[in-house]
Simulated assay, not measured.
Amino acid sequence: MKLLQRQIFLELSKLFGLTVSCLLGLILVGRMLQLRSLFLSQDIGFLHILELFFYLTPFFLLLLTPIATMLSVFLTYLRMSTDNELIALKASGVSLYRMLPAPALFCLMMTLFTFFISFWGLAWGMDMFKTKLYHFARTNSRFALQPGIFNKEFPGVTFYAHQVNNETGELKFAFVRDESIKDASVVIVAPEARIESTPELATIQITFRNGKIFRESGDELNVLRFGKYSIKLDLGRLLAGFTFEDKAKDMSFGRLSAIRGDPTLGPSLDERFQRKINTEYFKRLTMPLGCLVLGMFAIPIAYVFRGLKQQYGLLLAMGLFLVYYTMFSIGVSMGESGAISPSISLWAPNVLFVFVAGTGMYYANRERTPTVVQWLLHLRSPKEAEA
Protein backbone atom coordinates (compact mmCIF):
# COMPACT_ATOMS: atom_id res chain seq x y z
CA MET A 1 0.00 0.00 0.00
CA LYS A 2 2.88 2.39 0.70
CA LEU A 3 4.24 1.75 -2.79
CA LEU A 4 0.80 2.33 -4.30
CA GLN A 5 0.28 5.62 -2.43
CA ARG A 6 3.76 6.78 -3.35
CA GLN A 7 3.24 6.05 -7.05
CA ILE A 8 -0.16 7.78 -7.11
CA PHE A 9 1.25 10.83 -5.32
CA LEU A 10 4.22 10.96 -7.71
CA GLU A 11 1.97 10.82 -10.77
CA LEU A 12 -0.28 13.51 -9.32
CA SER A 13 2.72 15.77 -8.70
CA LYS A 14 4.06 15.31 -12.23
CA LEU A 15 0.71 16.06 -13.84
CA PHE A 16 0.20 19.08 -11.58
CA GLY A 17 3.60 20.53 -12.51
CA LEU A 18 2.93 19.95 -16.21
CA THR A 19 -0.56 21.47 -16.04
CA VAL A 20 0.50 24.58 -14.11
CA SER A 21 3.50 25.11 -16.42
CA CYS A 22 1.34 24.90 -19.56
CA LEU A 23 -1.37 27.19 -18.20
CA LEU A 24 1.14 29.74 -16.90
CA GLY A 25 2.94 29.62 -20.23
CA LEU A 26 -0.26 30.44 -22.10
CA ILE A 27 -1.01 33.30 -19.73
CA LEU A 28 2.60 34.53 -20.00
CA VAL A 29 2.33 34.90 -23.78
CA GLY A 30 -0.89 36.89 -23.50
CA ARG A 31 0.36 39.09 -20.67
CA MET A 32 3.69 39.73 -22.37
CA LEU A 33 1.84 41.03 -25.42
CA GLN A 34 -0.35 43.20 -23.17
CA LEU A 35 2.57 44.60 -21.18
CA ARG A 36 4.64 45.06 -24.31
CA SER A 37 1.84 47.06 -25.93
CA LEU A 38 1.71 49.22 -22.79
CA PHE A 39 5.44 49.94 -23.09
CA LEU A 40 5.42 50.19 -26.88
CA SER A 41 8.05 52.68 -28.05
CA GLN A 42 9.66 52.63 -24.62
CA ASP A 43 12.93 51.13 -23.50
CA ILE A 44 11.45 48.22 -21.51
CA GLY A 45 13.33 44.98 -21.99
CA PHE A 46 12.22 41.36 -22.05
CA LEU A 47 13.69 40.67 -18.60
CA HIS A 48 11.74 43.58 -17.13
CA ILE A 49 8.51 42.15 -18.52
CA LEU A 50 9.38 38.74 -17.06
CA GLU A 51 9.97 40.38 -13.70
CA LEU A 52 6.57 42.05 -13.85
CA PHE A 53 4.95 38.73 -14.78
CA PHE A 54 6.67 37.04 -11.84
CA TYR A 55 4.93 39.41 -9.44
CA LEU A 56 1.60 38.62 -11.11
CA THR A 57 2.15 34.87 -10.65
CA PRO A 58 0.44 34.67 -7.21
CA PHE A 59 -2.71 36.16 -8.73
CA PHE A 60 -2.70 33.58 -11.53
CA LEU A 61 -1.84 30.68 -9.21
CA LEU A 62 -4.85 31.49 -7.04
CA LEU A 63 -7.01 30.82 -10.10
CA LEU A 64 -4.98 28.01 -11.67
CA THR A 65 -4.21 25.80 -8.67
CA PRO A 66 -7.79 24.49 -8.22
CA ILE A 67 -8.17 23.52 -11.89
CA ALA A 68 -4.65 22.07 -12.04
CA THR A 69 -5.39 19.98 -8.95
CA MET A 70 -8.64 18.72 -10.46
CA LEU A 71 -7.01 17.87 -13.78
CA SER A 72 -4.14 16.03 -12.07
CA VAL A 73 -6.46 13.81 -10.03
CA PHE A 74 -8.90 13.25 -12.87
CA LEU A 75 -6.27 12.30 -15.46
CA THR A 76 -4.43 10.05 -13.00
CA TYR A 77 -7.50 8.03 -12.09
CA LEU A 78 -8.79 8.07 -15.66
CA ARG A 79 -5.52 6.52 -16.82
CA MET A 80 -5.64 3.93 -14.04
CA SER A 81 -9.21 3.11 -15.01
CA THR A 82 -8.45 2.94 -18.74
CA ASP A 83 -5.43 0.67 -18.12
CA ASN A 84 -7.60 -1.57 -15.89
CA GLU A 85 -5.35 -0.86 -12.91
CA LEU A 86 -8.37 -0.02 -10.76
CA ILE A 87 -9.98 -3.35 -11.65
CA ALA A 88 -6.77 -5.20 -10.81
CA LEU A 89 -6.47 -3.40 -7.46
CA LYS A 90 -10.09 -4.13 -6.56
CA ALA A 91 -9.61 -7.76 -7.53
CA SER A 92 -6.74 -7.83 -5.05
CA GLY A 93 -9.01 -6.56 -2.31
CA VAL A 94 -8.04 -2.86 -2.47
CA SER A 95 -11.16 -0.71 -2.26
CA LEU A 96 -11.46 2.79 -3.64
CA TYR A 97 -11.36 4.21 -0.11
CA ARG A 98 -7.95 2.65 0.50
CA MET A 99 -6.62 4.52 -2.54
CA LEU A 100 -7.70 7.90 -1.16
CA PRO A 101 -4.80 8.81 1.19
CA ALA A 102 -2.46 9.89 -1.64
CA PRO A 103 -4.93 12.14 -3.53
CA ALA A 104 -6.35 13.45 -0.24
CA LEU A 105 -2.85 14.41 0.96
CA PHE A 106 -2.04 15.94 -2.41
CA CYS A 107 -5.26 18.00 -2.47
CA LEU A 108 -4.70 19.10 1.12
CA MET A 109 -1.18 20.29 0.30
CA MET A 110 -2.47 22.24 -2.69
CA THR A 111 -5.21 23.73 -0.50
CA LEU A 112 -2.69 24.92 2.08
CA PHE A 113 -0.49 26.30 -0.69
CA THR A 114 -3.44 28.23 -2.14
CA PHE A 115 -4.40 29.52 1.31
CA PHE A 116 -0.88 30.90 1.66
CA ILE A 117 -1.25 32.72 -1.67
CA SER A 118 -4.74 33.92 -0.76
CA PHE A 119 -3.76 35.29 2.66
CA TRP A 120 -0.31 36.78 1.93
CA GLY A 121 1.13 36.03 -1.53
CA LEU A 122 -1.50 37.85 -3.59
CA ALA A 123 -1.16 41.19 -1.76
CA TRP A 124 2.66 40.99 -1.86
CA GLY A 125 2.70 40.25 -5.58
CA MET A 126 0.29 43.06 -6.50
CA ASP A 127 2.18 45.58 -4.36
CA MET A 128 5.49 44.64 -5.97
CA PHE A 129 3.93 44.66 -9.44
CA LYS A 130 2.60 48.21 -9.04
CA THR A 131 5.88 49.43 -7.54
CA LYS A 132 8.02 47.95 -10.32
CA LEU A 133 5.64 49.01 -13.06
CA TYR A 134 5.77 52.62 -11.95
CA HIS A 135 9.55 52.42 -11.46
CA PHE A 136 10.11 51.11 -15.00
CA ALA A 137 7.86 53.78 -16.49
CA ARG A 138 9.73 56.53 -14.64
CA THR A 139 13.30 55.31 -15.17
CA ASN A 140 13.32 53.41 -18.48
CA SER A 141 10.74 55.17 -20.63
CA ARG A 142 11.44 57.18 -23.71
CA PHE A 143 8.58 58.72 -25.63
CA ALA A 144 8.41 58.02 -29.36
CA LEU A 145 5.87 58.80 -32.06
CA GLN A 146 5.01 57.12 -35.32
CA PRO A 147 4.68 59.48 -38.30
CA GLY A 148 1.14 60.11 -39.48
CA ILE A 149 -0.46 58.31 -36.51
CA PHE A 150 -2.34 59.87 -33.61
CA ASN A 151 -0.77 58.91 -30.27
CA LYS A 152 -2.96 58.78 -27.15
CA GLU A 153 -0.65 57.08 -24.64
CA PHE A 154 -0.97 60.03 -22.28
CA PRO A 155 -4.55 60.29 -20.96
CA GLY A 156 -6.34 63.37 -22.22
CA VAL A 157 -3.48 64.33 -24.56
CA THR A 158 -3.31 63.55 -28.30
CA PHE A 159 -0.05 63.82 -30.27
CA TYR A 160 0.45 63.88 -34.02
CA ALA A 161 3.40 64.60 -36.30
CA HIS A 162 3.62 64.30 -40.07
CA GLN A 163 7.35 63.50 -39.97
CA VAL A 164 9.22 61.95 -37.04
CA ASN A 165 12.86 61.26 -36.29
CA ASN A 166 12.85 59.25 -33.05
CA GLU A 167 16.65 59.21 -32.83
CA THR A 168 16.98 62.99 -32.66
CA GLY A 169 13.46 63.71 -31.40
CA GLU A 170 12.79 66.15 -34.24
CA LEU A 171 9.17 66.54 -35.42
CA LYS A 172 7.73 68.22 -38.50
CA PHE A 173 4.21 69.62 -38.64
CA ALA A 174 3.45 68.74 -35.00
CA PHE A 175 0.02 68.84 -33.42
CA VAL A 176 -0.95 68.42 -29.75
CA ARG A 177 -4.45 68.52 -28.26
CA ASP A 178 -4.79 68.74 -24.48
CA GLU A 179 -8.23 67.87 -23.08
CA SER A 180 -7.07 67.33 -19.51
CA ILE A 181 -8.04 70.90 -18.55
CA LYS A 182 -11.59 71.09 -17.20
CA ASP A 183 -14.08 72.99 -19.41
CA ALA A 184 -11.38 73.88 -21.92
CA SER A 185 -9.53 72.44 -24.90
CA VAL A 186 -6.05 73.52 -25.94
CA VAL A 187 -4.53 72.81 -29.34
CA ILE A 188 -0.89 73.53 -30.20
CA VAL A 189 0.19 73.55 -33.85
CA ALA A 190 3.74 74.14 -35.02
CA PRO A 191 5.81 73.40 -38.16
CA GLU A 192 8.70 72.19 -35.98
CA ALA A 193 9.08 70.58 -32.57
CA ARG A 194 11.53 68.54 -30.55
CA ILE A 195 11.01 65.81 -27.92
CA GLU A 196 13.45 65.47 -25.02
CA SER A 197 12.92 62.59 -22.61
CA THR A 198 14.56 62.61 -19.16
CA PRO A 199 13.80 59.24 -17.49
CA GLU A 200 15.81 60.02 -14.36
CA LEU A 201 13.52 63.00 -13.73
CA ALA A 202 10.46 61.12 -15.04
CA THR A 203 9.61 63.94 -17.47
CA ILE A 204 9.14 64.50 -21.17
CA GLN A 205 9.62 67.99 -22.61
CA ILE A 206 8.23 68.94 -26.02
CA THR A 207 9.50 72.24 -27.42
CA PHE A 208 7.50 73.84 -30.26
CA ARG A 209 8.84 76.58 -32.53
CA ASN A 210 7.01 79.25 -34.53
CA GLY A 211 3.53 77.92 -33.92
CA LYS A 212 0.09 78.82 -32.61
CA ILE A 213 -1.95 77.94 -29.51
CA PHE A 214 -5.73 77.62 -29.86
CA ARG A 215 -7.63 77.67 -26.58
CA GLU A 216 -11.37 76.97 -26.63
CA SER A 217 -13.47 77.58 -23.52
CA GLY A 218 -17.21 77.49 -24.01
CA ASP A 219 -18.05 79.77 -26.95
CA GLU A 220 -14.76 81.66 -26.67
CA LEU A 221 -11.72 80.86 -28.84
CA ASN A 222 -8.33 82.48 -28.21
CA VAL A 223 -5.38 82.27 -30.62
CA LEU A 224 -1.81 82.97 -29.52
CA ARG A 225 1.31 83.03 -31.72
CA PHE A 226 4.67 82.09 -30.25
CA GLY A 227 8.29 81.74 -31.27
CA LYS A 228 9.14 79.02 -28.75
CA TYR A 229 6.86 77.13 -26.39
CA SER A 230 7.53 74.08 -24.19
CA ILE A 231 5.28 71.64 -22.34
CA LYS A 232 6.30 69.02 -19.76
CA LEU A 233 4.61 65.69 -19.12
CA ASP A 234 5.01 63.21 -16.28
CA LEU A 235 6.04 59.74 -17.45
CA GLY A 236 3.95 58.25 -14.66
CA ARG A 237 0.86 59.25 -16.62
CA LEU A 238 1.74 56.53 -19.14
CA LEU A 239 0.35 54.09 -16.58
CA ALA A 240 -3.14 55.52 -16.60
CA GLY A 241 -4.37 52.12 -17.77
CA PHE A 242 -3.21 50.71 -14.43
CA THR A 243 -4.92 52.23 -11.43
CA PHE A 244 -2.89 52.48 -8.24
CA GLU A 245 -5.90 52.94 -6.01
CA ASP A 246 -6.50 50.64 -3.05
CA LYS A 247 -8.65 47.81 -4.41
CA ALA A 248 -10.21 45.02 -2.38
CA LYS A 249 -8.75 42.31 -4.64
CA ASP A 250 -5.20 43.61 -4.00
CA MET A 251 -5.42 43.65 -0.19
CA SER A 252 -4.09 41.03 2.19
CA PHE A 253 -6.56 38.81 4.00
CA GLY A 254 -5.64 40.43 7.32
CA ARG A 255 -6.50 43.88 6.03
CA LEU A 256 -9.78 42.65 4.53
CA SER A 257 -10.71 41.18 7.90
CA ALA A 258 -9.78 44.42 9.70
CA ILE A 259 -11.88 46.57 7.34
CA ARG A 260 -14.85 44.23 7.75
CA GLY A 261 -14.60 44.79 11.49
CA ASP A 262 -14.03 48.54 11.23
CA PRO A 263 -15.01 50.13 7.86
CA THR A 264 -13.23 53.37 8.78
CA LEU A 265 -9.89 51.58 8.28
CA GLY A 266 -10.60 51.28 4.56
CA PRO A 267 -10.05 53.90 1.85
CA SER A 268 -13.81 54.37 1.37
CA LEU A 269 -17.02 54.10 3.37
CA ASP A 270 -19.09 53.63 0.23
CA GLU A 271 -21.60 50.80 0.53
CA ARG A 272 -20.58 49.27 -2.79
CA PHE A 273 -16.92 49.21 -1.71
CA GLN A 274 -17.87 47.54 1.58
CA ARG A 275 -19.75 44.84 -0.32
CA LYS A 276 -16.63 44.25 -2.42
CA ILE A 277 -14.58 43.91 0.77
CA ASN A 278 -17.04 41.40 2.20
CA THR A 279 -17.19 39.42 -1.06
CA GLU A 280 -13.41 39.36 -1.43
CA TYR A 281 -13.09 38.14 2.17
CA PHE A 282 -15.24 35.06 1.52
CA LYS A 283 -13.64 34.57 -1.89
CA ARG A 284 -10.22 34.23 -0.25
CA LEU A 285 -11.67 31.56 2.06
CA THR A 286 -13.65 29.51 -0.44
CA MET A 287 -11.37 29.52 -3.50
CA PRO A 288 -8.46 27.62 -1.86
CA LEU A 289 -10.90 24.98 -0.61
CA GLY A 290 -11.77 24.40 -4.25
CA CYS A 291 -8.52 22.41 -4.55
CA LEU A 292 -9.73 19.84 -2.03
CA VAL A 293 -13.34 19.85 -3.23
CA LEU A 294 -12.56 19.56 -6.95
CA GLY A 295 -9.79 17.03 -6.36
CA MET A 296 -12.14 14.68 -4.50
CA PHE A 297 -14.89 15.39 -7.03
CA ALA A 298 -12.61 14.27 -9.89
CA ILE A 299 -12.14 10.71 -8.55
CA PRO A 300 -15.71 9.38 -9.00
CA ILE A 301 -16.05 11.30 -12.28
CA ALA A 302 -12.96 9.54 -13.63
CA TYR A 303 -14.44 6.21 -12.50
CA VAL A 304 -17.83 6.85 -14.13
CA PHE A 305 -16.22 7.80 -17.45
CA ARG A 306 -13.65 5.01 -17.43
CA GLY A 307 -12.44 3.99 -20.86
CA LEU A 308 -12.66 7.57 -22.11
CA LYS A 309 -9.63 8.73 -24.08
CA GLN A 310 -7.47 11.25 -22.24
CA GLN A 311 -8.00 14.05 -24.75
CA TYR A 312 -11.76 13.73 -24.30
CA GLY A 313 -11.29 13.34 -20.57
CA LEU A 314 -9.36 16.61 -20.52
CA LEU A 315 -12.25 18.39 -22.26
CA LEU A 316 -14.73 16.82 -19.85
CA ALA A 317 -12.73 17.95 -16.82
CA MET A 318 -12.38 21.45 -18.22
CA GLY A 319 -16.12 21.57 -18.83
CA LEU A 320 -16.91 20.49 -15.27
CA PHE A 321 -14.49 23.07 -13.90
CA LEU A 322 -16.17 25.68 -16.08
CA VAL A 323 -19.47 24.80 -14.40
CA TYR A 324 -17.86 25.25 -10.98
CA TYR A 325 -16.14 28.51 -11.93
CA THR A 326 -19.33 29.89 -13.51
CA MET A 327 -21.22 29.24 -10.29
CA PHE A 328 -18.39 30.85 -8.36
CA SER A 329 -18.33 33.91 -10.64
CA ILE A 330 -22.10 34.31 -10.35
CA GLY A 331 -21.71 34.12 -6.57
CA VAL A 332 -19.09 36.90 -6.68
CA SER A 333 -21.31 39.10 -8.85
CA MET A 334 -24.35 38.55 -6.63
CA GLY A 335 -22.30 39.26 -3.52
CA GLU A 336 -20.90 42.51 -4.90
CA SER A 337 -24.31 43.64 -6.10
CA GLY A 338 -25.91 42.88 -2.73
CA ALA A 339 -28.45 40.48 -4.24
CA ILE A 340 -27.41 37.75 -1.81
CA SER A 341 -24.94 37.44 1.02
CA PRO A 342 -21.48 36.27 -0.19
CA SER A 343 -21.36 33.90 2.78
CA ILE A 344 -24.08 31.96 0.95
CA SER A 345 -23.34 32.59 -2.73
CA LEU A 346 -19.61 31.73 -2.48
CA TRP A 347 -20.02 28.67 -0.28
CA ALA A 348 -22.80 27.18 -2.44
CA PRO A 349 -20.53 25.79 -5.25
CA ASN A 350 -18.26 24.03 -2.74
CA VAL A 351 -21.20 22.56 -0.82
CA LEU A 352 -22.85 21.32 -4.02
CA PHE A 353 -19.66 19.74 -5.38
CA VAL A 354 -18.90 18.14 -2.00
CA PHE A 355 -22.33 16.50 -2.07
CA VAL A 356 -21.81 15.27 -5.65
CA ALA A 357 -18.30 14.03 -4.77
CA GLY A 358 -19.54 12.14 -1.71
CA THR A 359 -22.41 10.53 -3.62
CA GLY A 360 -20.18 9.67 -6.55
CA MET A 361 -17.54 8.17 -4.25
CA TYR A 362 -20.18 5.94 -2.65
CA TYR A 363 -21.37 4.59 -6.01
CA ALA A 364 -17.84 4.25 -7.39
CA ASN A 365 -16.68 2.20 -4.41
CA ARG A 366 -19.68 -0.12 -4.81
CA GLU A 367 -19.01 -0.31 -8.58
CA ARG A 368 -22.44 1.08 -9.34
CA THR A 369 -23.55 3.94 -11.52
CA PRO A 370 -26.21 6.45 -10.38
CA THR A 371 -29.61 6.00 -12.03
CA VAL A 372 -29.45 9.37 -13.80
CA VAL A 373 -26.07 8.53 -15.34
CA GLN A 374 -27.34 5.12 -16.47
CA TRP A 375 -30.32 6.79 -18.11
CA LEU A 376 -28.05 9.24 -19.94
CA LEU A 377 -25.72 6.47 -21.10
CA HIS A 378 -28.66 4.48 -22.49
CA LEU A 379 -30.34 7.39 -24.28
CA ARG A 380 -29.05 6.24 -27.64
CA SER A 381 -30.00 2.57 -27.12
CA PRO A 382 -33.34 2.89 -28.98
CA LYS A 383 -31.57 4.47 -31.96
CA GLU A 384 -28.99 1.68 -32.00
CA ALA A 385 -31.76 -0.90 -31.83
CA GLU A 386 -33.49 0.73 -34.85
CA ALA A 387 -30.20 0.74 -36.74
Results as ranks from 00 to 15, higher is better:
338 G>K: 02
338 G>F: 02
338 G>C: 09
339 A>S: 13
339 A>Y: 09
339 A>H: 10
339 A>W: 09
339 A>K: 13
339 A>E: 13
340 I>K: 02
340 I>D: 00
340 I>P: 00
341 S>Y: 06
342 P>Y: 00
342 P>G: 08
342 P>D: 02
342 P>H: 03
342 P>S: 09
342 P>A: 09
343 S>M: 11
343 S>T: 10
344 I>G: 04
344 I>L: 12
344 I>E: 04
344 I>P: 04
345 S>G: 09
345 S>H: 02
345 S>M: 01
345 S>P: 06
345 S>Q: 02
346 L>A: 03
347 W>K: 02
347 W>L: 04
348 A>W: 00
348 A>M: 15
348 A>N: 05
348 A>C: 11
349 P>S: 12
349 P>R: 03
349 P>H: 03
349 P>A: 11
349 P>L: 03
350 N>E: 05
350 N>L: 04
351 V>I: 13
352 L>P: 02
352 L>T: 08
352 L>A: 14
352 L>I: 15
353 F>G: 01
353 F>N: 00
353 F>V: 10
353 F>K: 01
354 V>Q: 03
354 V>C: 11
354 V>M: 04
355 F>T: 09
355 F>N: 05
355 F>V: 11
355 F>S: 07
356 V>E: 04
356 V>Q: 03
356 V>S: 06
356 V>D: 02
358 G>Q: 08
358 G>A: 15
359 T>P: 05
359 T>A: 11
359 T>D: 10
360 G>L: 07
360 G>M: 03
360 G>D: 05
361 M>S: 09
361 M>A: 10
361 M>D: 01
361 M>Y: 02
362 Y>T: 15
363 Y>G: 08
363 Y>L: 10
363 Y>K: 07
363 Y>N: 06
364 A>H: 01
364 A>K: 01
364 A>G: 08
365 N>A: 12
366 R>Y: 08
366 R>N: 15
366 R>K: 15
366 R>L: 14
366 R>M: 12
367 E>H: 13
367 E>C: 13
367 E>Y: 10
367 E>M: 15
368 R>E: 14
368 R>C: 12
368 R>D: 10
368 R>Q: 15
368 R>W: 06
369 T>I: 15
369 T>E: 06
369 T>N: 08
369 T>K: 08
370 P>L: 05
370 P>A: 05
371 T>K: 08
371 T>I: 09
372 V>A: 12
372 V>P: 04
372 V>C: 09
373 V>K: 03
374 Q>I: 13
374 Q>C: 12
374 Q>P: 05
375 W>A: 12
375 W>N: 12
375 W>G: 08
375 W>M: 15
376 L>S: 08
376 L>N: 05
376 L>F: 14
